[in-house]
Design a binder for these strands. Structure first.
Lengths: 264, 264
DNA sequence: AGCCACTTGTGAACGAATGCACAAAGTGGC
DNA sequence: GCCACTTTGTGCATTCGTTCACAAGTGGCT
């Protein structure tokens, strides 16, 4: 509804679909963390920081050295106050009257997001989606090398996909431990997802991205992020219905019979 | 951190990267909406309703007729109070002392989410991901028939993918209008995304799912949901870093040298 | 019929996230 | 060296979302 309307999450996010939560680090009355200022960064802000980082990388490539919160906010699709607040969670790296230096922000956001180390990723389920993920060049370049692939299909095991041979899902715990996988991506059919998840956890993986339309049950120390296209579509559907309703209510559905509105 | 820990959004909630917002329908002092009670349903609740719907469908297939909020909540990975509140937004369809009838809930959630009509989907960008989406059987069966495919590549135009011939992206506005596409899915490389988005909008599409890692600029009446794997990975990376930090702080990193923690 | 055990639906308290508005801090011009 | 201008960083009010806790209803049992 705001002027600068961006996108939502998925909540993500939530949503987008956000099971809200603070990322507070209780850190009892122990002194303060020596380096890494990093106190309580709201979950939502973390997601946005990742977006800022991408926008900033693009800016850096274009040779932009300095920019104001207003400019960055516009490019990231958020309002400038929110942007400044988000940045303030990670420290004070701007110069009043001037703005921010792109390279500094990039460095700091990378530091906070833990991108100074690289995190090996395992993809489980080499179907259409798994293939796409295994071949996608965007991750290795951003510090997320795909270091293991798994599938049940015996015909697929051993076959290299995107330069990496596929292993059998029974070997998930062993291989994950060996290759120090930190993030598991589940791209299997729904029925297999929970079993795969359990094996990933057994292999020491504590971070999972789940593309399967299932609610995974995991121990407390494991973090799951869900990506569910069906849910996204249904959320959009809801808003379509909402819009249609409001038109019917204040009468005069602007000439659209039912369904898609063509004009505006 | 709660006991029943589920997943987050992609807010996409957060998600994932959620630009929070109410779904309030101002509906001035006009009487009350005649049918469709549907007043202000929080964005986050809508995302969860979609999840409940999926869980409930599974239950229905298993022949479950009735269940309590507690049971459904457990299966959906949320706490039961939240679940009941979410359901209360759409009306009172439970029976005190007994619980909910699965089929009733399914019907009502489908009604609220606008799933009584089907919504035609267009997929733009028939690369690895686009292929996966075009072939994925999960959407048609849930009321989201894929009715158009687009790509720039002339070699691909005309070729049927998943039974549907690919059209050229220049024809997006025309084809979308003709086939009454209500949802566009962008699966192109980042550089092409904004142009594709503009054409979808020109074709009357007011709901977009964007897989390209770009912030799309759209007019106010268009709704964009972003699905960004890189962001998801970075959020997980953040939490990994957080966890590692806290271990170093209260001393005694349980025998892990640096990086992945194997035990627990 | 009356009581008991159970489960929903929701008011109200709490907590998190957003947006506003301004003081603080720096720059460049004169 | 001072002033006018710009832009950050943040306290505060507000809005949005989650959780608690309990009254109100329902079915089963005696």
């Amino acid at each position: 509804m705001a002027a600068a309307r961006g996108q939502r999450g998925g909540d993500r996010d939530v949503p987008a679909a956000p099971n809200a939560a603070e990322v507070t680090m209780p850190i009892p009355p122990v002194s303060d963390t020596p380096m890494q200022r990093a106190r309580a960064i709201p979950e939502a802000a973390v997601a946005r920081l990742a977006v800022y980082l991408r926008v900033l990388s693009g800016m850096a490539e274009q040779g932009i050295v300095t920019l104001s919160s207003e400019e960055l906010a516009a490019a990231a699709g958020v309002n400038s106050a929110k942007l400044r607040k988000d940045l303030s969670y990670i420290g004070s790296y701007g110069t009043r009257g001037v703005g921010y230096e792109v390279s500094v922000l990039v460095d700091q956001i990378e530091r906070i997001l833990g991108l100074t180390r690289s995190h090996s990723v395992a993809v489980v389920g080499i179907g259409n989606l798994g293939h796409a993920l295994a071949n996608y060049g965007g991750f290795p370049s951003r510090g997320f090398p795909v270091a293991a692939l798994f599938d049940v299909d015996p015909d697929l095991v051993g076959v290299p996909v995107g330069g990496l041979p596929v292993s059998h899902i029974d070997d998930i715990p062993k291989v994950c431990a060996e290759r120090e996988i930190s993030i598991g991506v589940i791209a299997t059919p729904p029925a297999a997802a929970q079993a795969v998840c359990d094996r990933l956890v057994a292999g020491g993986v504590a971070s999972i991205v789940n593309f399967a339309p299932v609610v995974l049950q995991v121990p407390d120390h494991v973090e799951v992020r869900k990506v569910d296209l069906a849910v996204e579509l249904q959320i959009l559907s809801f808003h379509v219905a909402r819009r249609a309703d409001s038109m019917n209510v204040n009468g005069s559905a602007l000439g659209n019979v039912d369904g898609v509105v063509i004009g505006r």
